Structure formats: C-alpha cells, structure tokens
Amino acid sequence: MNHHTMINLITHYSYPGIFLLLFIGIVGIPLPVEIILLGAGYIALKANLHIGGIIGFAWLGACAGMTLNYLLGQSIGLKRISKVTKWIKLSENRLEKWAELFKKHGAILLLVGYYVAGLRHAAPFIAGATRMRFTKFMSISYFGALAWILVIVLLGQKLGKAWHHIYTQFHHPIWIIVAVIIIGLGLLTKMMVHQRRVTS
C-alpha cells in the first residue's frame, strides 16, 4: 500500500482510517505509516480533519497494535512467532538475539523500536515472550508511541510543503537519526549510573 492509497483511505474513512493504518502498521504489515505522521498537517487540510484528532487516533491505533503484539508474544512465544515474522525478514535467530538484549535493556528497546524498521514490530512480541510485566510494558510503550508520533508530526510541521519531497528523496532518515540519539542518551545514562555506583 503506497502513501497515495493511505491518504485516500484517510480522506474516505476519516479518523477510523488513521486508527486502522497505525494498528496494522504496528501489528506487522510493513506500511510506511510515518508518511501519515509527517504529512499530518497536509492530511488535516485535505481530509478536513483536526491535527489533534489525527495524533489521537494514530496514538490509539499504535497502542492497540502494540498491545495485541504483546499478548501474542506472551501466548505464542518466539519460536512460533518466527514462522510469521520470517516474511518480514525477522528470523528466529534474530528474535532470540533481540530477546537476550531485551532482558537487559527492554525499556530502551521498546522506545527505540518505534524508529527502527523491524524492531517496531518485534519489540512488543519480545516483551510478551520474555514476560515483561504488562503494567511496565503499557507505561513504556504507550508513552513511546506518543513521543514517536509527536516527534514525526512536529518535524512534518517544520518541513511544511517539503515533507513529501524529503520523504521520497531520503526515505526514512528521521527515525533512524532519532533512534541513534535515544540509544546514545540511554547508553550515556547507563554509564553515568554505573560510574556513580562504582564511586559510591
């Protein structure tokens, strides 16, 4: 599904269309949902929608998708999930490696996952499969979803009319940059905490 089809779907179905696209984009179908968020201002004018409504329904769709993936991960496990995720180039071996990392850095991976292709779909599965507490998962993933949506929408607002041109020319640079920043801040924070423990 290309971005023209997605925009037409939103124009026709309004806010439920936004919810549905974000939901299936998180569940595992590789849709370029960021194009909706980058062009939220443009879509709001074209579809006669309020940008706050776009953000709200995008957030609800993302949270619903994350929750479903978490519950599937909890009930199915990584081995059986890998039979499905292999179609989006996520092998069982790769999922297991991420699961090991998740046991140590689960919160960071959940937050970063929104900005990294593949990890966004796999992170909630892994959270469920590794038995992360549901309340902890909700607080981190729901906050992360809102931050992800707001970051891209605000960047889209700054880009203005150039958002479509930049998207087609560079393709997905924004969340990669943000992911690097988040990872860097996470590692820096961990190093500072470790250093304090050593010196205390």
Rank of each mutant, 00 (worst) to 15 (best):
Q169Y: 12
T168L: 15
K158M: 09
Q169M: 12
A162N: 13
H164W: 12
Y167E: 11
H165N: 06
I166D: 01
W163V: 10
H164R: 10
P173D: 07
I181G: 01
I182C: 05
F170R: 04
Y167S: 13
Q169I: 11
H165D: 13
H164G: 04
Q157D: 01
K161H: 10
T168W: 11
V178M: 05
I177V: 15
H171D: 13
V178D: 02
I177Y: 07
V178C: 06
I174C: 07
W163Y: 13
H171I: 14
Q157K: 06
I177D: 02
I166H: 04
V180M: 14
V178H: 01
I176N: 07
K158D: 00
I183C: 11
Q169T: 15
I177P: 03
I183A: 09
W163G: 03
W175F: 09
T168P: 01
I174E: 13
T168R: 08
I183S: 05
W163L: 03
G156K: 03
I166E: 09
V180K: 03
I174P: 00
G156P: 06
K161F: 07
I181C: 06
I182N: 04
K161V: 11
H172K: 11
P173T: 08
P173S: 06
K158Y: 04
H164M: 13
K158P: 00
G156L: 05
A162G: 05
H164S: 11
I174D: 06
A179S: 09
K161L: 08
I183T: 09
I183F: 14
V180F: 15
I176H: 06
A162K: 11
H171S: 12
G160F: 01
L155T: 02
I166C: 02
H172D: 15
L155H: 00
I177Q: 03
L155R: 00
G156R: 02
P173W: 08
I174H: 08
H165T: 14
I166W: 12
W175Y: 09
L159M: 12
L154R: 00
L154G: 01
L159Q: 01
W175Q: 09
I174T: 15
L155A: 02
A179N: 06
I182P: 08
G160P: 01
L155V: 08
G160T: 02
L155S: 00
I174R: 00
F170L: 10
H165W: 11
Q157G: 00
Y167K: 02
P173Y: 07
Q169R: 11
T168G: 07
K158G: 13
L155P: 00
V180H: 02
V178R: 04
V180S: 09
L155F: 04
H172Y: 12
V178P: 02
W163Q: 08
A179H: 05
Q157T: 04
W175K: 01
L155N: 00
G160Y: 03
K158A: 12
V178Q: 04
A179Q: 07
A179G: 10
